[in-house]
Amino acid sequence: MNPAKNLLASLLLFILLIFSYSAIARDAVTVRTANLKESASVNSTTIKELKKNQPLTVILRKGSWYEVNVPSSSGEIKGWVRMIDLRFNEAVQNASGQSSVSLLGSVFGEQSSHTVGTGVRGLDNEDIVNTGSNTNIMGLGVISEDKKLENSTMNMNAVKDMEKFSISHDKARFFAEQGQLRSQAIILTDSK
C-alpha cells in the first residue's frame, strides 16, 4: 500500500471516530448537587460531589444512570450520575447561547408573530401545506392544533378505520414472545 493511500485511510478512520463519538456524546448539566459514582449504583464509591450546573458529557446509559465525563483541571474524570440529576437543554444553550432547537423555534416564532392577532399559535410546516377544508388564516392556511380541535367535526368513519387495526390478546402475546418480552414481577401502584 502506498503511503498516500495509507495516510488517506488513517484520516478517514480518524474522521469516522470523531463523528461516531460526537454522535453518542451529548453535553448536559447537573440540575442539583449530584454524586459522581464509580459505577451505576447508589452503593458504589463516590468519586466526587458535583455542584449544580456542572457541565459534563454523557457517554452512555445503563438503567437509570448515565456514564459521564466531567471536565476538571487535571483532565476529564469518568463516572456515573443518576439520569434524574441531569438536563440536556441548559447545556446546549449554555454552550452556544442558543440551541439549534430553539433557533428553529424562533424561526417559527417569527411566523407566529404574524398571526398573533388571530390568536393562532403552534404552527408547523405540515399545517401550512395540509389545510384541508379548515379555515384559511391570514391567507397562509396555517392552522394550529388548538384551532384544528376547535374546528373538528366528529369523524366516526375514522374510528371504524382505527378498529380495523385491532390486535387480539393472543397475537399481542405472540408478538411479545418474538421480542423475548416477559411479564415481570412489578406491582402496579399509584403515586399516592
Binding site: M83, F88, G109, R121, G122, Q180
Partner: peptide, 23 residues
C-alpha cells in the same frame, strides 16, 4: 411488560431539550 422502563426518562429528556415556544 418487560421493557427497560428508564427509556421513558430518555423521552422526557428529549422533550425537555425543545424550546418552550417550539411550534
Amino acid at each position: 411488560a418487560g421493557y427497560d422502563p428508564y427509556a421513558y426518562l430518555e423521552v422526557l429528556h428529549k422533550l425537555d431539550k425543545y424550546s418552550t415556544d417550539d411550534s
